[in-house]
Amino acid sequence: MDTMSVTVVPAHSATSVAVARDSARDFLAALPEPLAAEAAETVVLVVSELVTNALRHGGGTCTLDLTAHPDSIEVTVHDLSPQAPLMRTPDLNGGTGGFGWPMVNRLAHTTSVRHRPSGGKTVSATLAR
């Protein structure tokens, strides 16, 4: 099993999200059995959404963990907020979002949100290899 962990800092959140995406691409490229291009880009999209949400709504800092299992890739993001992501109707006119969490749930085989004993939460998405 291959794993990687990246702490994403809030200094420039757009830059931080880009670093998370690049880290995910590097992790996937280094796997002994590479993913198909479409599967890899799906993992990167989920990383981007979960890290963006953690920085925006989860206290401004997060840690990204990626784990390669034989049949799946697990994307896990830890942040400081106890508030779970909400499934809501996307805002098509006001620009307040609502697209990311439903999209992650459609792309992933499973998602979970766990509250951490030390505070905050862990959001995980498992995607097919």
Rank of each mutant, 00 (worst) to 15 (best):
residue 23 S to R: 15
residue 125 A to D: 08
residue 4 M to W: 01
residue 70 P to M: 04
residue 74 E to C: 06
residue 95 G to W: 06
residue 89 T to P: 00
residue 116 R to N: 04
residue 59 G to N: 11
residue 18 A to S: 15
residue 114 R to I: 08
residue 46 V to L: 06
residue 34 P to S: 15
residue 107 L to F: 01
residue 87 M to D: 11
residue 11 A to R: 13
residue 57 H to W: 15
residue 1 M to P: 09
residue 53 N to H: 14
residue 71 D to N: 05
residue 128 A to T: 14
residue 63 T to Y: 00
residue 49 E to S: 01
residue 53 N to D: 06
residue 8 V to S: 08
residue 69 H to E: 09
residue 101 W to F: 12
residue 57 H to T: 02
residue 23 S to T: 14
residue 69 H to R: 13
residue 16 S to H: 02
residue 80 L to V: 03
residue 15 T to A: 11
residue 85 P to M: 04
residue 70 P to D: 10
residue 85 P to T: 10
residue 20 A to M: 04
residue 123 V to L: 15
residue 86 L to C: 13
residue 42 T to F: 01
residue 103 M to Q: 07
residue 24 A to V: 07
residue 16 S to W: 00
residue 14 A to D: 13
residue 124 S to F: 02
residue 71 D to H: 11
residue 60 G to I: 15
residue 129 R to D: 01
residue 87 M to H: 13
residue 26 D to Q: 13
residue 20 A to W: 00
residue 97 G to M: 06
residue 114 R to Q: 14
residue 115 H to Y: 03
residue 11 A to P: 00
residue 9 V to K: 11
residue 13 S to G: 02
residue 109 H to Y: 06
residue 100 G to P: 05
residue 94 G to M: 10
residue 44 V to R: 11
residue 89 T to G: 00
residue 17 V to L: 05
residue 18 A to M: 14
residue 107 L to E: 04
residue 57 H to Y: 15
residue 99 F to G: 00
residue 11 A to H: 01
residue 119 G to T: 03
residue 83 Q to L: 15
residue 24 A to C: 14
residue 45 L to E: 10
residue 126 T to W: 12
residue 92 L to V: 05
residue 66 L to G: 02
residue 31 L to G: 03
residue 85 P to R: 07
residue 62 C to D: 04
residue 115 H to A: 12
residue 33 E to R: 03
residue 8 V to Q: 08
residue 121 K to S: 15
residue 32 P to W: 13
residue 118 S to F: 01
residue 11 A to I: 01
residue 96 T to Q: 05
residue 38 E to V: 13
residue 118 S to K: 10
residue 55 L to A: 02
residue 34 P to T: 07
residue 79 D to Q: 07
residue 62 C to F: 10
residue 91 D to H: 09
residue 83 Q to I: 15
residue 52 T to W: 08
residue 95 G to L: 04
residue 61 T to F: 04
residue 55 L to W: 05
residue 16 S to D: 00
residue 75 V to N: 09
residue 9 V to R: 15
residue 26 D to P: 03
residue 111 T to N: 05
residue 50 L to D: 09
residue 63 T to E: 10
residue 14 A to M: 09
residue 81 S to T: 14
residue 80 L to I: 02
residue 102 P to H: 08
residue 63 T to C: 11
residue 82 P to E: 12
residue 128 A to L: 12
residue 82 P to R: 14
residue 79 D to E: 11
residue 47 V to I: 04
residue 26 D to I: 11
residue 48 S to V: 00
residue 38 E to Y: 00
residue 83 Q to Y: 03
residue 39 A to C: 04
residue 101 W to T: 06
residue 93 N to L: 13
residue 22 D to R: 11
residue 12 H to E: 10
residue 13 S to D: 01
residue 85 P to A: 06
residue 9 V to C: 11
residue 121 K to G: 08
residue 42 T to I: 09
residue 110 T to W: 06
residue 3 T to I: 13
residue 38 E to I: 06
residue 57 H to V: 00
residue 1 M to Q: 08
residue 8 V to F: 03
residue 9 V to A: 15
residue 45 L to W: 01
residue 45 L to F: 00
residue 34 P to F: 00
residue 129 R to V: 14
residue 92 L to K: 03
residue 39 A to M: 01
residue 90 P to G: 04
residue 87 M to N: 05
residue 37 A to V: 13
residue 95 G to H: 05
residue 58 G to F: 02
residue 43 V to D: 09
residue 64 L to H: 11
residue 17 V to E: 13
residue 85 P to G: 02
residue 108 A to Y: 02
residue 98 G to M: 07
residue 51 V to C: 12
residue 20 A to N: 12
residue 88 R to G: 04
